[in-house]
Amino acid sequence: MDAQHKEYEKMKNEIHKEIELLFKANMKIFDWDIPENDDRESARLIITAIEEAVDKLKRDVEAGKYDNY
């Protein structure tokens, strides 16, 4: 296994935790800002926003934006 894949294995769980923290923080904000909040719908909307951001990152990677990061 090369160094990048070793680092990936080491960091994967931390990345997942950070995404979950982002999700939960936004769920709290929806609850604070919307008294009659539908938690399931808010969760869906937040996940959609996260997916859109990941899709943009994927496009940026393929376009070479991070080749010399």
Rank of each mutant, 00 (worst) to 15 (best):
K10G: 00
I34Q: 07
K58M: 10
F30L: 09
N26W: 04
I34M: 06
T48G: 06
Y66M: 00
T48M: 11
A43D: 05
Y69F: 13
K17P: 03
G64I: 00
D31V: 11
K24C: 05
F23E: 07
N68M: 07
D67K: 08
A49I: 07
S42W: 04
R59C: 02
P35F: 01
L45H: 02
V54Q: 03
E52V: 06
A63H: 13
Y66P: 01
E51W: 04
I50C: 05
K12Q: 12
D31G: 13
R44V: 05
Y8H: 05
H16F: 10
I34T: 14
E36A: 12
I46F: 00
K28L: 08
N68Y: 10
D55H: 09
M1Q: 14
M11R: 10
I15G: 04
M27T: 00
K17R: 15
P35N: 05
D60V: 03
H5G: 06
M11A: 10
D60W: 06
R59L: 09
M1V: 10
I15C: 03
E62Y: 14
E14Q: 12
M27P: 00
F23C: 02
D33S: 13
E52M: 12
I46H: 00
P35L: 04
N68F: 15
K10C: 00
F30Q: 15
K6Y: 10
I29P: 00
D33I: 03
E14V: 12
E51H: 12
A53S: 15
M11Q: 13
I29W: 08
K56R: 11
D39F: 04
K58V: 10
Q4E: 07
S42P: 00
P35H: 02
I34L: 04
K58P: 01
K17H: 11
H5T: 09
F30R: 15
I15K: 04
N13T: 07
A25H: 15
